[in-house]
C-alpha cells in the first residue's frame, strides 16, 4: 500500500473522528451548556466538511500515482 492509499484511509478516519467529535460536543453542550464546547463541536463539523473536500482534491491531484 502506498502513501497515497494510506493517506486516503487516514483522511477517511479523520472525517469520522471529526464527525464523532462534533456529535460528542453537541451532547456535552446539552449537558453542560458550555458555549466553548458548542464552538468546538461546530468546528468539528466544519473540519469534517473541509477534510471531505480536501480528500477529493487530493485524489484529483495525485490521480496518476499508483495505490501500490
Amino acid at each position: 500500500m502506498s502513501l497515497k492509499a494510506f493517506h486516503v484511509f487516514f483522511v477517511g478516519l479523520s472525517v469520522l473522528c471529526a464527525l464523532g467529535f462534533g456529535a460528542w460536543a453537541i451532547a456535552d453542550y446539552l449537558r453542560t451548556g458550555s458555549s466553548t464546547v458548542l464552538l468546538l463541536g461546530v468546528l468539528g463539523f466544519a473540519a469534517a466538511a473541509a477534510l471531505v473536500w480536501y480528500g477529493f482534491w487530493f485524489l484529483r491531484k495525485l490521480k496518476n500515482v499508483s495505490y501500490l
Binding site: F10, C17, G20, F21
Partner: peptide, 17 residues
C-alpha cells in the same frame, strides 16, 4: 517516512476519543 508518520497520527486518532 510518511507511512510511519501517518501511522503515528492514526494512533492519536484512536487515543484522542
Amino acid at each position: 517516512a510518511g507511512l510511519y508518520w501517518h501511522f503515528v497520527d492514526l494512533v492519536w486518532i484512536f487515543l484522542f476519543p
